[in-house]
């Protein structure tokens, strides 16, 4: 599995553990669906909560679909380098300007994330311990400085790009040619999905 992901399994699990609680948290509200008159319900916590079978079904439905979505997207993002993802978007006829914008953001995201974590480290090493919402002003000033630095960086980057002959379009990676293996895997999974839909109800 980790070969197919092109990443260690532990990285995959770590990514999933960050996102999954949110999915389960939202799904947890599903069982409280309105109970119809006469519908039987199971008492939980000594009758404090009444949950119907339909509610449990709704929870399982949302939680499983949500979890599968997270698995699939995590596998996609770990196995596919971002420039190939962008080439794929071009293949899907996403406008070129949007794809160059996405390429640009992705490139600077990590630069600015590092900048943000340096600012956080500097703040914390000066003894800041925010616990209450009215202390958010400190975060506001940090984000403000980050914004100014980002804008100034974008001006420098733009000047540098112009001086290297930038004319409004970014060079894009080519989509790698599909191999026979890719076709085989796709056909296999599509036939599993379609036959599950046809024969299992």
């Amino acid at each position: 599995m980790s070969v197919a992901l092109r990443a260690p399994l532990s990285v995959f699990l770590k990514r999933i553990i960050v996102i999954l609680p949110f999915v389960l948290f939202i799904a947890a509200s599903a069982p409280f669906a309105a109970r119809e008159a006469g519908e039987s319900a199971r008492p939980f916590f000594g009758g404090a909560l009444l949950v119907t079978d339909r509610g449990i079904e709704a929870f399982a439905n949302a939680a499983l679909k949500g979890a599968l979505g997270v698995f699939a997207l995590t596998a996609l993002s770990l196995s596919t380098p971002f420039h190939e993802m962008l080439a794929g978007l071009r293949w899907f006829k996403v406008p070129a300007i949007l794809v160059s914008l996405a390429a640009f953001s992705y490139r600077y995201m990590f630069v600015l994330l590092d900048e943000a974590s340096r600012m956080k480290r500097a703040r914390d090493s000066r003894g800041w311990r925010g616990r209450w919402i009215w202390q958010s002003g400190v975060v506001g000033n940090m984000i403000g400085s980050l914004l100014l630095r980002s804008f100034e960086r974008s001006e420098r980057v733009y000047a540098a790009m112009l001086s290297r002959g930038y004319d409004g379009s970014l060079p894009m990676a080519e989509l790698p040619a599909p191999r026979a293996f890719d076709f085989a895997v796709s056909v296999f999974f599509f036939s599993v999905i379609i036959s599950a839909r046809l024969f299992l109800t």
Binding site: I97, L101, S105, R107, Y108, V111, L146, L147
Partner: peptide, 11 residues
């Protein structure tokens, strides 16, 4: 617009 919007999105 490309560098400005791209960097703002990253921000």
């Amino acid at each position: 617009q490309v560098p400005l919007l791209g960097v703002t999105a990253a921000f």
